[in-house]
Design a protein around this nucleic acid. Structure first.
Lengths: 458, 458
DNA sequence: GGGTATTTGTCCGTATGTATG
DNA sequence: TCATACATACGGACAAATACC
């Protein structure tokens, strides 16, 4: 620590070493510096404070004899606990490791056996070896090489048609939505979202003072008539990965939504979360590429494709918003890591993202059918089991029986993590669990819920 | 490319290979796929589309004979230019390298000879070798280990008093301000900022519908009386690094601002940009630590301390805002890279950030005095030269003579980048230029501006 | 894993100012 | 006035622990 906050007065009559002693003592007593913490070395502090080493040494000596700190030769001075015992050394002060389930059907991770960590590491390393890149701020809009790579990738994988100029990079969807809200400032009254809504996006709209209208949808998604009636000029849709509904918005409905946009002059925000990850059927192309008239803003990301910890997303602006954006771009700092942007650009350009996508599709196809099969066997008689394809999970809909929260609790005692949902629903994600753990995981779940208090599974 | 966007209809009477041919042709003609680009292999595309290899081959054949694409045995099919020539291969399509000045007195980079890239690389490498960390999303508030490290660091270096719970990580100041604006939604009418303002922050407030009042300040910074009169409940101040003013807000004024907050129940947002980088005198501790009554929100960052390309910043919430934030935290995804967060945590905890800080202070002290000395010699007679200490730059104030823009142009022709400012001001940053380049850089500048059309330097 | 450079507590000689006799 | 003692402050030298490659 630099302890720059210490303020001493040379003229105060009081000896300097005593002033220092007092300040350090009160800091220790008030808990501002913690037991076990290392104090700055005598040399360092003397330099910082512009004092002689002896002065510091005297102050430290005083604290030593009074039992506040402990001198460890050639290592440093360390703060003791109030009881005078030596505090834990920093390395020993390890956090209590949060409980890790043996079988993780959560939705917050990807399977480490499938993640392409090796290639990612290689690319990051390569970028870090380019000092010219690292010592400079990045471009506001995102690195050009990545925007070009995404232009090509999004066209090939999703049919998104755009130039690199339309692509804006950001650290996930939210920062990009803030920029969008800024562009729309004052010109848009409300944004329509399909029930049950999408908190992460709604939060952004709320923060920017834009009203959110939740519209009930049908099996095919948001209804254009409802949209029309709501009077909203902007609609936020997640056509590929709908909350609580396994099927994406079908082509026909997409066309209807595009018609709504064309007729009313509205804007469609297409959040294509996991859009490329459809594996049982061919993915439905993005609406952005189907639209003839520039009324779709496309949002894409990579958390489930590459690594959840890599927060890089992008949006494709409609041409009509481009001049407005470019004028304002300098006022928005880029949020995504420059190193990760450049690494991702290479990763995409070298075709590895695409290879990874193919790999994952196969893996998820296998995992999902195995999991569906096992769950049908185990709980088919007492629950309705439905595959949520692109959200990479399966929901069990129980009628009666313990609450989802209780079921999740029971599962935890058997080392299984599942996600409790509303209305008797329990969700099991399969992105994060290795293939080989699925069968034992379901067995453990069966034990946890069996003899089921609510269901005759035999 | 995956070419998932291709949509064929089995029932349409039209042969499949012709449908495919048409789609590819129009894609090539519309420029959606670029000359030189490799088409997917026959095997791959046949798998993607669920068709026979022959179908694809026929379509490709057709495109070949019509000169749209070119078959390269054992390599693949490549798109030709409209003229029938082979397009440049992707690797050859290198970007025009943006002009790099020989002597960079810009403010957007740090000196690569001072940047601690080696240590940073080591820490990043270490993190990447921990798959468990990388395959999981991070915590919304930021990694705990980093928040703890910053709690200790900010106390030692800046006198900020807080718990790890109060620390929120983000990809720079802007994402953090959005969160703050969300917390204040509706409860705050306007934010006061000292003239000449700070566009990056104002943009966020504007996006969130919060009015910005620019208050003229005096030499010591924002005036409490003006603040009082404005009626604003929130004030945004940059006490360490004031735009166009070399000196930070002095202790007395800080106390007065704190008094304003205490008396009116207002909130001070303390953006401590480069606060730790004061090198000529001891840094003034942060207001956050001086305040007895929890009315300061502290903002810190690392771009100039570590690497500009690493966008990690943090804010320290006042206790009173904590419950509100914690309730809303799950709705804000973390924006900073998890790998960089964990690497930074280790970097800080191992004391290397502090060592780097010391190193940089020395370097900047040397650089600034050298630059000031040389500029005085060269332009002392025709410009007022003032050191902006923590912004790490020097401003030359010319009275008369060419416009700053013209001066910057002249400099560019001699390979020197400087930053034109308003009102006859030209700014020279010294963070990004190596020590040894300063003297020749100033000489080049002297040549560029000499024989000065405006100033007798002899 | 081992060799080297740096960091660090400790010890020691010195200088200055003040009070005492 | 001088000698002595003491408190305070400064910086050089040494050897062990640590960090780094």
């Amino acid at each position: 620590m630099t302890y720059d906050y210490i303020q001493l007065e040379k003229e105060s009559g009081q000896p300097l070493y005593l002033q220092l002693y007092e300040q350090l003592k009160s800091a220790a007593q008030s808990g501002s510096i913690h037991p076990g913490q290392k104090l700055p070395s005598i040399r360092r502090l003397s330099e910082d404070l512009g004092l002689s080493r002896t002065t510091i040494e005297n102050a430290y000596q005083q604290l030593c004899v009074e039992g506040y700190i402990d001198a460890q030769p050639q290592r440093g001075y360390f703060v003791l606990t109030s009881g005078g015992k030596r505090g834990v050394r920093p390395e020993e002060a390890v956090h209590p490791i949060p409980w890790q389930p043996r079988y993780n059907f959560g939705t917050d991770a990807v399977d480490s056996t499938c993640a392409d960590l090796k290639a990612w590491r290689r690319h990051i390393r390569e970028i870090l070896n380019r000092p010219q890149a690292m010592v400079r701020y990045g471009e506001h809009q995102g690195e050009l090489s990545l925007r070009e790579a995404l232009r090509d990738y999004s066209y090939g994988a999703r049919g998104v048609v755009c130039s690199a100029e339309q692509v804006v990079i950001g650290a996930g969807t939210q920062p990009l939505l803030y920029i969008l809200c800024g562009l729309m400032q004052g010109q848009v009254g409300a944004v329509a979202i399909e029930e049950p809504g999408f908190p992460q996006a709604e939060q952004v709209f709320a923060d920017c003072g834009i009203e959110v209208l939740r519209l009930p949808g049908d099996d095919s998604g948001m209804r254009p008539e409802a949209l029309q009636q709501s009077g909203a000029k902007v609609a936020y849709v997640t056509p590929s990965s709908r909350e609580g509904n396994g099927s994406p918005i079908p082509l026909l409905r997409r066309q209807e939504l595009l018609n709504w946009a064309a007729q009313t002059g509205g804007l469609l925000i297409e959040d294509d979360y996991n859009g490329e990850l459809r594996y049982r059927a061919r993915p439905i192309p993005a609406m952005q590429g189907m639209a003839a008239d520039d009324r779709v803003l496309y949002l894409g990301s990579f958390s489930k494709l590459l690594l959840p910890s890599v927060r890089v997303g992008y949006m494709v602006l409609p041409q009509r918003l481009l001049p407005l954006y470019l004028a304002r771009a300098p006022r928005y700092n880029q949020t995504a890591s420059k190193a990760e942007q450049l690494a991702l650009a290479d990763y995409v350009k070298s075709g590895q993202l695409e290879r990874q996508l193919r790999r994952l599709r196969k893996v998820y196809a296998q995992k999902s059918s195995l999991l569906m099969h096992l769950l049908q066997e185990a709980f088919g008689k007492c629950a309705q089991i439905s595959l949520q394809e692109t959200p990479l999970c399966v929901t069990l809909q129980f009628h009666g029986g313990p609450s989802p929260a209780r079921l999740a609790e029971l599962a935890e005692t058997y080392g299984v993590r599942v996600c409790p949902g509303p209305e008797g629903k329990v969700t099991l994600g399969f992105a994060g669990i290795p293939m080989g753990d699925i069968a034992p995981g379901v067995h453990a779940l069966q034990k946890a819920w069996n003899p089921p208090e609510f269901c005759i599974s035999g």
